[in-house]
Design a protein around this nucleic acid. Structure first.
Length: 477
RNA sequence: CGCGGGGUAGAGCAGUCUGGCAGCUCGUCUGGCUCAUAACCAGGAGGUCGCAGGUUCGAAUCCUGCCCCCGCAACCA
């Protein structure tokens, strides 16, 4: 088996603070990365920030700050998640990094050299009222919703286009020969039918005069890259591509043996599983190995949005539930790939039930009962069985945690059935037997929790060693 | 006929691919226990699986039609 493991999240766009949805994505990746590390693999876990594009440029202008200063501020906010959520990512790439820009230009050149880029007149609709370009999807009945009745101007602009349409067959072939290329299956079906319906070439550049905040197009001073083309390249620029070919092959893989795992939200299905793969194919580079598509988080049945004012941020969650509490709650909010609904009330209920009353209380019972005992604890080698490994590999991490919590439940019942506090008084031998099992189980739980709740795992192990009682999770309210 | 997802106990969900006793967590009611974080354990109540038809010995699951909710509709990350 290959010794190297590569996983990447999508890069969040730096026009808003981190929210629970992205936190969920990056925690999933974090658990997987820690898990693979435990299996003895060398791991690269990539994340970062997407910092180019019109929106960011405009926002910086609005705030009257230098664009670079603006993106620096936001990049720092996202990098703070590392400590906030106890993440172990190895790479944090910013699309404004010099080596990234170079890589994006190199990718462009290769795609171009292979004949997949061409120049074309492109008509944009322009609302004079807003002084802004409008896309068809923004229009209502052909008019700008803010200025109904005002005719839109048509402006012609020359842009570079990517021959997405020419890669339809190659993409379909990729999907066909990799039956688990996109997970879950329903998303795979969705992207397959999208590609089968036919692809349209898309614009991959903008006029620099209108939008200066982008990576310059090689050999054309008047144009900058459209943000997607630039941003997607991060997955390989982070590995030092194109200069460091060895590192690239080690982690990204080769055509024969692709190695890159990607995780993304469902809004990114097309970009990650079709556009980016097409770009790689066009540049004659290996594709990703697998793309995992996560669902969305809603709050009390409503879309999480600034205007509704129901955004749940990882920061608030950590303040309330602690790091591992937050990790646990985001990991167990529902089935991977489905949309999951959360609310403060539900989160608190689950926190109290599973963490305080469940794991926390069990630890507290076992440590107290074993206070005066000095038993040798059996440490298992292969803590994850075949079934659990499979679940981790398909990102069904909630199911693995459920399996761990079944041990918690069994042990609570076992204590009730055997009444060790009575045995301690009248049956020393049996008392030791019972406690041996409980200590072994709790040790196993702690070992299994390492990738999921790293701090808690340590605390349990420490409590078992020192016999000092510890409150793992304070009850809320 | 634009694309896709969803409708299963008071709440949240799993089960649907591959048909075989309708399951889990929370809540609720009753009882038990005292090692533990007002926790823990046992038992109970609660469901015409969105609706209507079809296939089958048998349908939450497969097929057809309909109703309702939610995303997305590509140069907007």
């Amino acid at each position: 088996m290959k010794k190297e493991f590569y996983i990447t999240t999508t890069l969040p766009y730096v026009n808003a603070d981190p929210h629970a949805g992205f936190a969920s994505e990056i925690i999933l990746a974090d658990v997987r990365a820690r898990f693979e590390k435990l299996q003895g693999k060398e791991v690269i876990f990539n994340t970062g920030t997407d910092e180019h594009g019109l929106k960011i440029w405009q926002k910086a202008q609005e705030e009257g700050v230098d664009t670079q200063a603006y993106v620096d501020k936001y990049a720092a906010k996202f990098d703070e998640l590392k400590e906030m959520l106890e993440l172990n990512y190895t790479n944090f790439i910013r699309t404004t990094d010099e080596n990234h820009k170079k890589a994006a230009q190199e990718l462009w050149k290769r795609v171009d050299a292979n004949g997949y880029i061409y120049k074309k007149q492109y008509k944009v609709k322009y609302c004079v009222g807003c002084e802004l370009e409008k896309t068809d999807s923004e229009l209502v009945d052909g008019y700008c919703p803010l200025h109904p009745g005002k005719e839109l101007e048509i402006i012609e602009e020359e842009n570079y286009f990517f021959k997405f349409s020419a890669l339809q067959d190659k993409l379909l072939e990729l999907y066909k020969s990799n039956p688990n290329f996109v997970v879950p299956n329903k998303r795979f079906n969705e992207i397959k039918s999208f590609v089968e319906r036919g692809l349209e070439d898309f614009s991959i550049s903008r006029l620099k005069s209108k939008m200066p905040w982008g990576v310059p197009v090689p050999g054309d001073d008047d144009q900058v890259m459209y943000v997607w083309f630039d941003a997607l390249t991060n997955y390989i620029s982070t590995l030092g591509w194109p200069d460091n070919q060895e590192n690239f092959e080690k982690f990204w893989g080769t055509k024969e043996s692709p190695n890159a795992i990607q995780i993304a939200g469902k809004d990114n299905l097309r970009q990650q599983s079709a556009m980016w793969q097409a770009m790689l194919l066009a540049a004659d580079l290996p594709t990703s190995k697998q793309v995992f598509i996560n669902g969305f988080i809603s709050v009390d049945g409503q879309k999480m949005s600034k205007s509704i004012g129901n955004v749940i941020s990882p920061k608030e969650m950590v303040e309330k539930y602690g790091i591992d509490g937050t990790r646990y709650l985001l990991l167990t909010k529902g089935t991977f790939g489905e949309d999951n609904d959360i609310s403060w009330e539900k989160l608190t209920t689950k926190y109290n039930a599973d963490l305080a009353n469940g794991l926390g209380n069990l630890t507290s019972r076992v440590v107290k009962l074993s206070e005066n005992l000095d038993l040798e604890i059996e440490k298992k080698e292969n803590i994850f069985d075949e079934a659990n490994i499979k679940l981790v590999e398909s990102f069904d991490l909630d199911k693995v945690l459920e399996n761990i919590w079944n041990i918690v439940r069994e042990d609570n019942k076992y204590i009730e059935d055997t009444k060790p506090w009575e045995l301690a008084k009248n049956n020393e031998a049996e008392f030791k037997n019972v406690m041996q099992k409980l200590l072994n189980d709790l040790t196993l739980i702690a070992q299994m929790l390492i990738p999921f709740l790293p701090e808690t795992a340590k605390k349990i192990q420490k409590a078992l060693e020192t016999k000092e009682r510890v409150i793992l999770f304070e009850r809320i309210r």
